[in-house]
């Protein structure tokens, strides 16, 4: 069996939070023993609602959040708990990159698009400036932007174009895994479809695996092969996306699917639940 590109085992995150009433702190278990694997060239979606722990999982894998316990294996190699420095940080940057939800806050407003992408290239590769410019041009083409976009600042781009830049910047490091954290949620419907098609095309042409974090089941269905459903920090269901969406086994997954508006759908009041 080939080694999965990403594997997490019993991943756990506990935050210390201030007690709502009174003094002191209490523990909040954001992620409770999550385990799953992302196969090489695969696309795995983690779905859930707010508070499910899906973004915390993504942030721990990207190294933006320290895990409390459990293990993260990238290409079969376990990542230590200690904060990485220098060369190790760079190496990890070539393994996992992340695209965030809001393209209005994830790009530096003072940087041109060329310098934003070139910066990542210089960090990871020894390139002449001519080669670097060629790589920037190639990346812009790959994400469907025109060459003239290289010299502009983010403010003159639309939301969809900015998200293409964020994807190009993430791809510049040639990562093995791309984490997309609600990467199409803030986009208008007509633009969202363009980005979803782009992500599908990129996976055809390069060796890259996706970890897709989303609350949107219709989007997940479009981009993932496998799905992990999270609810209140726990994984409640894992399986092939088609199977889980067609025949959900877990009660919560069923509830989630039933709530998606579609032709002929009517909203239903459920038993009184207080959230």
């Amino acid at each position: 069996m080939t080694t999965p590109i990403l594997e997490v085992r019993d991943l756990r995150k506990v935050f210390d939070v201030r007690r709502e009433q009174g003094r002191g702190k209490e523990e909040l278990v954001a992620v409770d023993d999550a385990s799953f694997t992302l196969p090489l060239n695969g696309s795995l979606a983690v779905v859930g609602e707010s508070g499910s722990g899906k973004t915390t999982v993504a942030r721990m894998i990207a190294g933006l959040e320290q895990r409390t316990s459990g293990s993260i294996l990238v290409n079969g190699v376990e990542r230590g708990l200690a904060r990485p420095r220098g060369a190790e940080r760079l190496r990890r940057g070539k393994e996992v990159q992340m695209v965030f939800q809001d393209p209005y806050s994830s790009l530096d407003p003072r940087q041109t698009i060329r310098s934003c992408i070139a910066e990542v290239l210089s960090l990871h590769f020894e390139l002449s400036s001519k080669d670097r410019d060629e790589r920037v041009a190639g990346l812009l083409g790959d994400v469907g932007l025109a060459q003239r976009h290289a010299s502009v600042h983010p403010r003159s781009l639309s939301g969809g174009q900015r998200q293409r830049v964020a994807i190009a910047r993430a791809l510049a490091a040639e990562p093995r895994v791309l984490i997309l954290d609600e990467a199409v949620s803030a986009l208008d419907v007509s633009v969202q479809a363009q980005i979803l098609n782009l992500l599908g095309d990129l996976r055809q042409t390069r060796e890259i695996s996706y970890l897709f974090i989303s609350h949107d089941l219709a989007v997940v269905q479009q981009v993932s092969d496998e799905v992990v459903v999270m609810h209140r920090g726990r994984i409640v269901e894992v399986g092939s996306t088609d199977d889980v969406l067609r025949a959900p086994a877990d009660e919560y997954t069923r509830r989630l699917i039933a709530a998606v508006p579609r032709p002929g759908w009517r909203p239903q009041r459920h038993a009184r639940t207080v959230d």
Binding site: Q161, S190, V191, Q194, N197, A218, Q221, Q222, V260
Partner: peptide, 20 residues
Amino acid sequence: LDSRPEFGARVRARPIPGRP
């Protein structure tokens, strides 16, 4: 209507070109 991924079927979206 066509841009939105159809729930229950996996077909490539046919997006409207350009931006609003």
